[in-house]
Design a binder for these strands. Structure first.
Lengths: 195, 195
DNA sequence: ACCTTTTTGGTACAACTGTATTATTAAATC
DNA sequence: GATTTAATAATACAGTTGTACCAAAAAGGT
């Protein structure tokens, strides 16, 4: 059993370099050579940590997913009133800063890249949908949700609303400031809650 | 002034072949050779109609935009009650059939492809935003909109909601049937309108 | 018939792609 | 210190890319 010093750290560093290259040059620019150059490694070194390009891309995307999941669960751990809690979690999904914007940009590039390639299925959105269900359930259980609403459709509506907002924040960041995003999300929550 | 028989028709045919290739193999597969093969032309012939690949891609995307615009304006010409009119127009934006799904898939692939390439700006979303503004304005002018609502934020909300729904319909067509899409859209319109 | 212009197919080329292979260095284990 | 393994670098290769070029064909006008 050989002692491996920092194998996983290196893979993560390479994944980070991959994100940067995708941000700079798009999915087409995510070549093994560009990634190796960004990571400061040789082709051979890169190939040692990832046997193929596909393995590298999949790993990099799973890391994106894990990061987002971690951020969201961290927020959900905080002690907040139901409505504020919902708003904070939703704000964590919509890209508002360079960090989260980069994450979603990479994710979107990867999704459209993988779309015509059947074999690899993506389950990222399922997690977000589950999050929406949890939020609606939470608001309902704490008595904040207006009683006459259809929870099932409202979940779908919130899901679409948030992802659309995220898409717009990504494609037109100059037209949708973080303050406007928060205002719009708060508005929606207020509309489906009592008061 | 030489008589050109069907120059524009050929360019449109090539653009259509480009869409098909993007649908089949993604943006990475949209090579001049693949497109020429799909269109049944030689490399030289293709190059005669489009001096560069960029010119071809831009032309193909403008055609997508024109098609969508035409479909929507055609619906808006119909004589319908305000709420039904709004629903029909919104249904035209969300991809519900193979045709419109293909259009949006190509558009999304193109947008993410062009994102890191600064020079070319896309104005497609501006048109959709203007459409949302028109719908809200129309609902408001005909007295269907609930009075206490903030029209500005409601427009942004509708905009995000529809684009999110469109994104979901594209990425998870099995989870969002046309009937469900119509039901969700109708629900949203009902929520912001009187009755 | 001739000539001009449009349209096409074929080929060539330099650059880039993912992957494979090799030799060499650094590190760990005995 | 010896030896085994991890890690790196360099190079090679076959395939694909966008673009350029050119000769042949088709079409149109005179």
């Amino acid at each position: 059993m050989p002692k491996i010093v920092n194998h996983d750290d290196r893979r993560e560093k390479i994944a980070r370099a991959t994100w940067q290259v995708i941000l700079d040059k798009g999915m087409e620019g995510a070549t093994v050579r560009n990634i190796a150059k960004e990571a400061g490694l040789s082709l051979g070194a890169l190939r040692y940590y990832f046997k193929s390009q596909d393995e590298l891309l999949v790993y990099a995307m799973e890391l994106v997913k894990n990061r987002a999941t971690k951020r969201i669960t961290a927020v959900s751990k905080k002690e907040l009133p139901p409505k504020e809690m919902a708003i904070e979690i939703l704000m964590e999904i919509v890209p508002t800063n360079a960090q989260t914007r980069a994450e979603m940009e990479v994710w979107l590039a990867f999704v459209t890249y993988m779309k015509p390639r059947k074999h690899a299925k993506l389950h990222i959105n399922d997690d977000i949908l589950q999050g929406m269900e949890k939020i609606m359930q939470y608001l309902s259980a704490t008595g904040n949700l207006r009683a006459e609403l259809d929870v099932s459709i409202e979940t779908e509506r919130l899901y679409a609303f948030i992802d659309g907002l995220a898409l717009h924040a990504l494609l037109h960041p100059e037209h949708l400031s973080p303050e406007q995003i928060r205002k719009t999300i708060t508005y929606h929550i207020d509309q489906i809650c009592i008061f």
